[in-house]
């Protein structure tokens, strides 16, 4: 079972932190296909964050095809992410590269900067919805629709409500 740790001062939106930590757990194999995510109730009881935030994160993970919500049962992992076990060849190569970098008198920050630069060259930018990139143009049109409380699988009373979201492109 994964346990979320929310950092209030990170500047990263809380739901993004949950998404990132879930993905991290999938990458490290802490979570595997078939595993159950903690219920919204369990998460908010431990973290004191708003239940809708958890649901928003779970909805995001569901949209990425990583988890699926089964009504009345819970949210389950559909597939894991590419895991890189400790003994994989990729890790061994990276290890050797790090040794060479150190021999070349690079310090930790230099290595990190170098690695990030290469990463940016080869991979798309990370999640754009976080509050981290404060200087980009605000474009709420692609912000995910707020999940409504009706998604709560363990909720007693159900009622539909129209979610007034001015950022909704529809």
């Amino acid at each position: 079972m994964v346990e979320y740790r929310i950092d209030r001062h990170s500047g990263v939106a809380t739901y993004v932190q949950i998404v990132q930590q879930t993905k991290q757990a999938l990458r490290l194999g802490v979570l595997q296909a078939g595993d159950k995510l903690p219920t919204a109730r369990e998460v908010v009881e431990a973290t004191a964050i708003n239940p809708n935030t958890v649901l928003k994160a779970y909805r995001e993970l569901e949209r990425d095809g990583l988890v699926e919500a089964r009504r009345g049962v819970g949210t389950f992992v559909r597939r894991g992410l590419n895991t890189t076990p400790a003994d994989s060849p990729l890790r061994t190569e990276l290890d050797a590269w790090a040794v060479r970098a150190r021999e070349a008198a690079l310090d930790r920050d230099d290595v990190a900067a170098l690695f990030t630069a290469v990463l940016d060259e080869h991979f798309a930018a990370p999640d754009p919805n976080g509050r981290t990139d404060l200087h980009s143009r605000t474009d709420r049109a692609d912000a995910p629709v707020r999940p409504s409380r009706t998604d709560l699988h363990d909720m007693h009373d159900r009622h539909d409500r129209h979610d007034p979201n001015p950022g909704d492109p529809s």
Partner: peptide, 16 residues
């Protein structure tokens, strides 16, 4: 504060 806020949020999550 954290614990009681968690209790309140759990209440909101469970019973709406």
């Amino acid at each position: 504060r954290h614990e009681l806020m968690g209790t309140l949020m759990a209440r909101a999550a469970q019973y709406g």
